[in-house]
Amino acid sequence: MSASTISVTLKIWRQKNPQDKGHFETYPITVSTDASFLEMIDQLNGDLIVQGKDPVAFDHDCREGICGMCGAMVNGYAHAHEKATTLCQTHMRSFKNGEEIVIEPWRASAFPIIKDLMVDRSSFDKIIQSGGYISVSTGSAPDANATPISKIAADHAFASAACIGCGACVAACPNASAMLFVSAKISHLAHLPQGRVEGKKRAAAMIDRMDELGFGNCTNHRECEAACPKEIKLENIALMNREFLTAEFA
């Protein structure tokens, strides 16, 4: 960690509310290279408040890349340019002195803008509610080791379950499709014997809900996979389609 500073020009999308048309505003800033991207926005906001201006609204919480609350398009990349990294884990040392940094909210009709960089992702919750679970009530579980699950299946399930629900996949997709998000959940549960029971019903319900909520379709651009901070694999979508088709024609 070597502390030095860089000066960059921020072009940030400002939008008061969903009705406002919105516009870019430009802010020059000098910031420590050890600062995280969100700490850079904190610093900007501190300056704006003291100047009597409206600070930039953005969602964030854990700042360690796991809660999925933060996210913005930075120079056209969801969660900025670094691979497998959320915005809160992006550090200013990965930007160059003098660089212009364009910051926009996720753009998708299923994620309406609330203010500035904040969007409404409650559609993701609604998709999970349609069937993204195993229907087991508390108290009815057998011993945890009663059913052996191969390490390979468990590892597959875990890799898909690592999704943080941030919405980068939707934001990166030209169709604003939620297929990577939905397929990650379907695939997580489909890899486990206890999840197989409802597998097809789950896939059908979640895909129906996803369509109802106005997400687009997958046309194999693979932008979602490239943008995903948790490296959720595109093969989940293939598995989901298999579940869905066999559910439809079962």
Binding site: Y133, I134, V136, T138, G139, S140, A141, P142, D143, A144, I149, S150, K151, A154, D155, A157, F158, A161, H188, L189, L192, Q194, G195
Partner: peptide
């Protein structure tokens, strides 16, 4: 642990 496994929590195996 029993409850979580039944829910599909992918513990290390």
């Amino acid at each position: 642990i029993d409850q979580c496994v039944a829910q599909g929590v992918p513990f290390a195996r």
